[in-house]
């Protein structure tokens, strides 16, 4: 691992790019094949369903990728999203201005994650232990506090996830689609796809990818994940970098929770089952190495889309959803093997 540090980003970028191309090719193949079997699969309505309903997974996977690159893991993320969504909904119903109903959960998320980060960085408790404990606390705590009551009756403007891009420019009721001007009607399908969650997903992915690649702070995450001791010798403090990693993860988790909460009319105040696994899977399939030190967030977003598309495709081609998980498992395995193969090739080339 340590040897790769020296030749950091440029090379990594190129190699992880191939993981991203692989995923892009996978997505394209899936859409072409299933689209030929049933053209409705590639209709903009279905694309919208796939993207809209899973954008929050992609956003959460960005933060998870940063955590994994730093050599840690977070299994509390699904529970935290459940808790934050309930807080967000409860605030909105209580009449708090919608902006605060969105912002407060994000702030709480950052604080909770920084608390976990402090336990990991300063008290040196392994992240898997900290987050396993937190998973328990959040999951039990949520039901204790809310009794699992469903939250409904949020004001219309709360539903950020239902906004379209055009709503920003043409004053319209959020949630009700703005009328597309005549001159742009040819582009309507494209505008339909550009809902808030999808825009969030796009911009956050690109922003995070840029941050990780081009800023000193972003690159320090790779350094700490690759070899904390070497990083320290280079003047990159492990502790402060990890605090930053968890704060960034908190930010993305918070945003994901807001997207998650503002989509449905009713918020189920329980922890979404297996969500952490889906998010970790997206990161890992996206090419983030669990050993730390490599991977990008563009891959994780593509992987989130691919996994969601596979779930939808299985219904379109009439395959029992029971095989979905087996397919996911094989997908991760294949991706990881491809990654290991590439690393070996690289090792030989050197």
């Amino acid at each position: 691992m340590s040897a790769t540090i020296a030749q950091a980003p440029a090379r990594k970028w190129r190699f992880s790019l191939s993981q991203e191309w692989l995923l892009l090719i996978g997505i394209a193949t899936l859409f072409i094949v299933v689209g030929l079997i049933n053209p409705r699969f590639v209709a903009s309505r279905n694309l919208q369903s796939i993207l809209l309903a899973n954008a929050y997974v992609a956003v959460a996977a960005i933060g998870m990728s940063v955590v994994i690159v730093s050599g840690n893991i977070d299994i509390s993320v699904g529970s935290l999203i459940g808790v934050l969504a309930s807080i967000s909904g409860a605030l909105a119903v209580a009449g708090v201005p919608v902006f605060f109903a969105w912002a407060i959960p994000v702030v709480i998320s950052i604080l909770v994650m920084m608390l976990q980060g402090a336990l990991v960085a300063y008290l040196r408790i392994p992240s898997i232990v900290v987050t396993l404990g937190m998973l328990s606390i959040l999951k039990g705590g949520l039901i204790s506090v809310t009794n699992g009551v469903w939250i409904s009756g949020m004001p219309d403007s709360f539903h950020l996830a239902q906004w379209h891009l055009l709503d920003l420019f043409i004053a319209a009721e959020p949630g009700k689609q703005a009328a597309v001007p005549e001159s742009l009607s040819a582009l309507k399908p494209m505008f339909d796809l550009l809902t808030m969650p999808v825009l969030f997903m796009l911009f956050l992915t690109l922003g995070a990818a840029w941050w990780m690649r081009n800023t000193a702070k972003g690159r320090s995450v790779y350094a700490v994940g690759g070899n904390a001791e070497a990083a320290r010798l280079c003047g990159i403090p492990r502790e402060r970098t990890l605090m930053m990693v968890f704060a960034v993860h908190g930010l993305f988790t918070g945003l994901a929770a807001v997207l998650f909460a503002t989509q449905p009319s009713v918020i189920q105040s329980t922890v979404p089952p297996n969500l952490e696994l889906t998010i970790i899977t997206a990161s890992v399939v996206g090419g983030v190495s669990i050993l730390g030190g490599t991977g990008t967030v563009i891959g994780s977003t593509l992987a989130a889309i691919l996994i969601a598309a596979i779930g939808s495709a299985l219904i379109f081609v009439n395959i029992s959803p029971y095989w979905l998980r087996a397919a996911q498992g094989i997908l991760i395995l294949v991706t990881v093997l491809a990654d290991i193969y590439r690393r070996r090739q690289r090792g030989l080339a050197r």
């Binding site: 699969f41 209709a43 309505r45 279905n46 309903a53 449905p264 189920q268 979404p272 779930g311 219904i315």
Partner: peptide, 25 residues
């Protein structure tokens, strides 16, 4: 036409129902 499974999961139910709508138009 078809029966889909969605456990007792809000999000999965929403996705499965949307997929049915998209599939059969």
């Amino acid at each position: 036409l078809e029966t889909v499974e969605a456990q007792e999961d809000n999000i999965l139910s929403f996705n499965q129902a949307s997929t049915l709508l998209n599939k059969y138009g």
